[in-house]
Design a protein around this nucleic acid. Structure first.
Lengths: 334, 334
DNA sequence: TTGTACGCGTTATCAG
DNA sequence: CTGATAACGCGTACAA
């Protein structure tokens, strides 16, 4: 059984109040007693009980982080950033895996609320009304990460997908491409689907280039297999495109893999730009030019944002962070 | 401010003891009062305070997980498994990022001990004496995951790297290869380096095949760049190998990339088998045959192991889990 | 069947 | 400078 403040007090022949004062760097004791107490603490290997502290201080120095999926470097990148911000301020993080499931999410929301976490970071998923109402009622500060809410006023940190898609397309255009296709997610996906499609379409339009239904292949998701389907589509319905904007790196790599099998040379015959900058983007052949979201920085910002809400009790600005284009070898000047 | 058990008791005209009994499914109350109390709880949206509970029960239903690195699918796979086991038993997990740094690790160990986590999962790294002594003194149950300790008697869950490397090599041999090279990590790395090297060497020896210094390229680490260096080495010191065993998938992919540039066809001229089965293994060209460690299952086993130690207070067996070989397209019969 | 009162390990407010 | 003592929210032995 671990030692308590009482044990320290008894051994040092002082009251627990004095020990507490010393522990919390307050004043009201002589140097002599401080030294004595510190020595006892050292000897006993005493550590304050954070649970008891949390009970009285109403702060647990713990924040809950909810992930819909626990896989891929997206998660670890975000996590690393959040952890950095949290540990810099002495907080730890509790990781939850919701599986995009309503009930599991609610279960976790209840759990985190019971555990009295100081705040919540909700990532990569739509904030449903049920979640929002609960959080509101439980009065837990929350920030959205890599997602945002159109309906509720909740601070968020994310990149502007529309802008990023727009500039990816523009990048291709500046390289001289005029006939460009896109392999996207579903337009019903308001977070990662529609904004990127709109960015692509608008960039084309603004440069007086044609982009109709034939230029857009809407896949079911953002994975390798979707890229394969997309490439097959553009190979079959030949409309003479010289470049593709893929809505994810996995799509891009799937497309490149299929192009390879079809005997299409990349980037000589077809340029491809991806989206995400996953680890593997630099290992593919050719290495993949892509739009990077700075996930680690985003995680860190979200952590800082949440902590500053906790400290200052003020609600700061939303943070739209900048994407950037990583130039590698899969796009060629035309 | 959240409601407390007192609020419920007052509104329901009963004592807090009765409310507590109802909450904990004990006996000693009429059905009528139970219904009344439950109604009030519902109305108020009352949730018990887990912090207060933790103080009195001496269980926080939280386990701490320490990762040296927060990146890659290894981490998320382990995490997913741990989370599954934990949440199935009503526990949550606290994620710590030690950066393989002694001081940061000790800081976290202190923190977790102060927060009174029920137990610890220590992953992917050597358990140093300092850590072990602290954990022992703090009396926190630990299990090692994807690592083990030769010096201390701590339960662990990991695959047998020696065996896995042995069977990867044997796989190549059974495909008809007799002149095989290996790109490995450093032999000073007792966790992931030496065992795989030994497995390779012994498999060769047991099949009366030659494997000397020239057949072994020891890289500095397990990354893409190391694979590039390794491939260059084997290209330069041409000893007629027809297959390579790479100690990681990243090495394998780096080697394949370089082979490609050197005009060496894979798998026609050179077969490659990797180790890890990272996401990208199935997306490479050609897709990579590799040794898979079932990280998610391992995480889940570690979680279950720890929880059973907590529940039953008994120390169970160590768990060596089976690897398996994922056959894809980078190895060809010779 | 129910309520009172103490304790879990702290912090903070008083007196002294 | 220091020490009782009342919270914090809950569980539980004991009494009623």
């Amino acid at each position: 059984m671990a030692y308590t403040i009482k044990d320290v007090a008894r051994q040092a022949n002082v009251s627990i109040a004095t020990v507490s004062r010393i522990l919390n760097g307050q004043q009201g004791y002589s140097l002599k007693t401080k030294e004595k107490v510190m020595r006892i603490i050292e000897e006993l290997g005493y550590h304050p009980n954070a649970v008891a502290r949390g009970l009285i201080n109403k702060r647990t120095h713990t924040i809950g982080v909810l992930f819909p999926h626990l896989s891929g470097s997206l998660v670890t990148d975000l996590l690393r950033g959040i952890e950095k911000a949290a540990s810099a301020r002495g907080s730890s993080i509790m990781v939850c895996h919701t599986e995009s499931d309503k009930e599991k999410t609610m279960k976790y929301l209840h759990l985190l609320s019971e555990k009295r976490v100081d705040g919540l970071i909700f990532t990569s998923e739509t904030l449903r009304e049920e979640y929002y109402q609960f959080i509101l009622k439980a009065n837990i500060p929350v920030v959205l990460l890599s997602t945002k809410s159109d309906e509720y006023d909740v601070p968020y940190v994310k990149v502007d997908d529309y802008k990023a898609a727009y500039s990816a397309t523009e990048y291709l255009i500046k390289k001289g491409h005029t006939n460009i296709g896109m392999i996207s997610g579903r337009k019903e996906d308001l977070i990662a689907g529609k904004p990127r499609i709109d960015g692509f379409l608008d960039a084309m339009k603004d440069h007086q280039l044609q982009a109709n239904d034939k230029h857009l292949y809407m896949a079911n998701g953002f994975s390798f297999i979707d890229g394969i389907e997309g490439m097959k589509y553009f190979h079959k319905h030949t409309i003479g495109i010289t470049a593709i904007f893929a809505a994810s790196d996995e799509i891009a790599i799937g497309a490149m893999s299929t192009a390879n099998q079809l005997g299409i040379n990349i980037p000589e015959e077809l340029s491809i730009i991806g989206y995400d900058n996953i680890n593997f983007a630099e290992m593919s052949i050719p290495s993949l030019t892509t739009v990077a979201q700075p996930f680690t920085e985003m995680g860190e910002q979200a952590g800082k944002l949440l902590l500053s809400i906790l400290e200052n009790d003020e609600i700061p600005e939303n943070q739209t962070v900048a994407h950037r284009i990583i130039e590698r070898d899969s796009v060629q000047e035309k």
